[in-house]
Each structure stands twice: as C-alpha cells, then as structure tokens.
Nucleic acid binder design. Structure first.
Lengths: 250, 250
DNA sequence: CGCCTTCTTGAGATGACTCAATGGTGGTGG
DNA sequence: CCACCACCATTGAGTCATCTCAAGAAGGCG
C-alpha cells in the first residue's frame, strides 16, 4: 500500500479525424464483406494527446476503441487519489468494451503518448455480435487474454517482489512490442515512453522505489533505463526473474 | 510479497454423478428448446470433496463448469509454492471457460467445501456459442464481471492496506451470498467455510497477519470471526473501509 | 535562460513478514 | 468413551521490504 499522490491529468475534447477504418485488429477473422458493413457503421478515428484521458472509470461506456498508434495506460483510481495501473494497451489492442448497453467503464484509459484510436459505438458492436458469432468468439478471446493478464497482475502484486514485478512488466512489454516491429534491429532497445512514475503505478510501487529497483536491475545487468527507451541487456534473465509466461498475454 | 508455504492439496478423481442439468445459471436467457439441446450434450454433474482441485493451472482446458453447490477458490501459484487467490466462486458461478479449443486454464480451482458442479465440454460450448449469439453475449458479460472484479483485486493489492483488503473481501462475499439466501435472517451472520489461511491467500497476506487484521476488525466492531461463520456487526463500516463498490461484482 | 517535469539519492519510519510457541477443537481409533 | 492427533487460530518478538519526506541534479520546452 502506498499513498503517493499522482500528477494531475487533463481532460480533452477528442478531435474526430473522421476517416474510415484503416486497420482491422478487431476484425482479423471477419469476412471482407462484413468488414465493409462495419465501415458503414458510425466508426470514426480520433486523435488524443499524451496525458489526456480517453475515458474515465464509472462513466457510461458508450464507446469501445481499437488502438491504432500510441500507448494507453488502463488504470483504476484509489480513494486517496493514487492510481493503480492495470495494463498498458499497445497498437492493435481493443479497449473499453462493455457487454451491455447500460454498463459503465470499470477503469480509465490514459494516453501515455499521443494516440490514434478507432471508436465503435457499443450498440453497434452488440448488433454486430448478434449477427456474427465470429465476433463474439473473438471478443471472448480478447477478454480471456485480458483476464489472464489481469490474473498475472494479481499474482504479481500479491506474491512477487518489486524487482520481479518490474521485470515481469518489462518482459511483457518486450514480448508484446516485438510483433509490432517496435524493437530495435539487434533486439536490445525497446521504446519506452512511460515515466518511472507510470511504471510504478503499473507495478504497485512508489516512483522512488521504482527508481531504486531499476537501478538494481541495471546493476544486475538486466536492463538499462534511458529517456524514452529501455535497453534490454539480458532478456532471458528478465523473463526468469519476473517469471514471465509468454502464453499469458497473447 | 511473502514466501509462506501453503498446505498441500490433494488431487482427486471426480466422481461423475451422471444426471442432467438441474440448474441453468449459465443459461438464464437461453430458450427452453435450446436448453433441451444442451442437456443432450455430454454435460454431467460431478461431486468433489473439500480440499481437492477441480482443475489446475496450465492444464488443457477441456471442461468448463457451473457451480451448483459449495465454494471454490480460484488461484494462481507462485514459483515459491505460495498461492494467490483470485476469486471465490459461489453457487451459480461459471468457471473454467476457455475461448479456444487448445487453451489451458489460466488458474486452478480448489474446492473450499464439498462441491457439486455441472461440467460442459469446451467444444460443446463453442458450438453452442456459434449457434446462439445470446450465449456469446452472456459469456462476455460473465467475463466482463470477472475482469472487473479482477481489476478490483489489482487495485486492492496495489494500493489498499491489509485491513481494507480484508474488509473488501468480506463485503464482497456478503453481497454475493445475500441473493443466494445464505445470510442469516437478521442479516448479520454469513457462512464462512474458508480458513484464515485461505482468506490470506485471497487478500495477499500471510495467515498470521490475516489473523491480526481480523482481530483489529473485531476491535473496531466491524466483524467477529467464528468457526465457519462470520458475524457482520457493521456492514456499512465494512463497505466503507474496504471501499467496496457493489456494481463491480454482479 | 529559466522553469517545470523527471530522475536520483539519502535517511528514517512502518506495515507486513518470519520464526516460534501455545492453545482450541473436532475427528478417530483403541 | 476417552485420549490422542492433526489442523487451525492466536500471540509475541524481531526483521525486512517498501514507503515517506526531503533535497538536489538533469533534461526539455517556452
């Protein structure tokens, strides 16, 4: 437990870019013709600046989003104002889905970097699900992965040391960034637009302790923190320390 | 983090009671005729004794289960052998679902009490989903609730004190037992078949500290622990301390 | 060029853990 | 029917991981 207060977050009116779906992360298995149908629905592309929120917890869940570019931090807020990170969403991820029309978001979503998303109205998604069982299967599959990843977080926060939790988080991001071709050629440097404070929110640590742990990881020759980047010196060691299981994320 | 070792768990061959579905917690919105179809599929009722596992993490997820009677503890195991509880499943809950045929269980399920479950083959569930979008919607709704509850656990383990976490867990169980008519008439006593050790697993605490926290809660006049029972003296206080939000569970 | 955010390090406090021992309680077998 | 045993709950004493408060250094941006 910790009571560290978090830097304030700005709210921003999203600018609608209003162009059709470019990517189909959500729709990989959907037939072309149906995808065409999806495009005719009121989906739209939005831009959001870093440090602004895409949606906030407990608000009516009107839209769900596929992330096109940038990173999002999904989080829950504690009564003392501190944030607990739940998951980092990367390009291709599908966030904010709610199963019924009257649901609220169970968490907030904060733009770590500038972000482009494709928004879907939940109503439309529900209609699509009823028409296309494939989509339903896909959404349950997505939810299962998130659930599994969330369970990993519970295990980590409940049982693992700070070092293990950070190692796990970094190994996770590395393995999820790899298929996005976001890792440098030699496989050592990954982009890391989060602050240490955010990494602490994700792993349940104070910024101060996060920093100390990163120093330890550097001293152990596992990773080196650089502004906006992390050099992974020993991926195997990171995976092993964090007890990262690849299968749990995607 | 804690390294406390957990008492060993027995494996048991499940006895198949081989009688048709009696309850339809999973199928509340499914048309009667389809339910009939479901009964013709190879669903079966099983009994499992307390302290035995229904399924273990990483095993191929062949079956999913609707819990008829008894309590289950869903958990993940840490490399040091300690267990982290994820959720207590109560009668009516649907557990062990996997979205694809080749998935493995992301967690284990341990019988807290003697238990009766109805087992479904995942293959059959998938077939049913494809035929009946309603079921898909229902499963996504169930998953969304579990996900939300899991997110609450992450928030709790990351940000809340031991007292708050235990208060949250007890408030949660109280509110979920109420609709099952499991609370005593005066609304004060709830059945509590878990050991303090298990409650500690669920809240990320050692048995010893769990005990101390329960003493504090008693001294504050919130709850009184009795063998197999908990007397809730101040439900409001419990909810407030644990920051329990009813909507997050069901 | 100066301010603001982020990172870094030190020193001390504290919540939760570990080890250890005692006391109930219910089940089981002689 | 009683005695024993296994499991669970309880309490004490000491340790350790992580937190808090505090201050300084290092970049980036207007």
């Amino acid at each position: 437990m910790q009571r560290h207060k978090v830097t304030e977050v700005r709210q921003q009116q999203m600018r609608c870019v209003d162009c059709p779906i470019r990517q189909r992360a959500l729709f990989q298995v959907v037939a072309e013709d149906y995808l065409h149908d999806a495009q005719s629905r009121r989906t739209a592309q939005y831009e959001l600046r870093a440090r602004h929120t895409l949606y906030v917890e407990d608000a009516p869940a009107l839209m769900a989003y596929t992330l096109f570019s940038g990173w999002l931090l999904l989080f829950r807020t504690h009564s003392d104002g501190s944030r607990q990170g739940l998951r980092v969403a990367l390009p291709g991820d599908f966030v904010g889905y709610a199963p019924t029309g009257d649901s609220t978001y169970s968490h907030g979503a904060l733009a770590i970097t500038d972000v482009v998303v494709c928004g879907f109205r939940q109503d439309d998604l529900h209609t699509m699900i009823d028409a296309q069982p494939d989509i339903a299967r896909q959404i349950t599959a997505i939810h299962s992965r998130y659930l599994s990843s969330c369970e990993s977080n519970v295990l980590g926060l409940g049982r693992k040391s700070a070092e293990q939790r950070i190692a796990h988080a970094l190994a996770d991001l590395y393995h999820r960034l790899e298929p996005l071709a976001a890792i440098s050629e030699n496989g050592r440097v990954m982009p890391f637009p989060m602050t240490q404070e955010m990494l602490g929110e994700l792993t349940g640590l104070t910024p101060v302790h996060t920093n100390r742990v990163l120093r330890k990881l550097r001293e152990h020759g596992l990773v080196v923190w650089e502004r906006q980047k992390i050099e992974v010196r020993d991926l195997e060691g990171l995976v092993e320390l964090g007890e990262y299981r690849r299968s749990f994320v995607r």
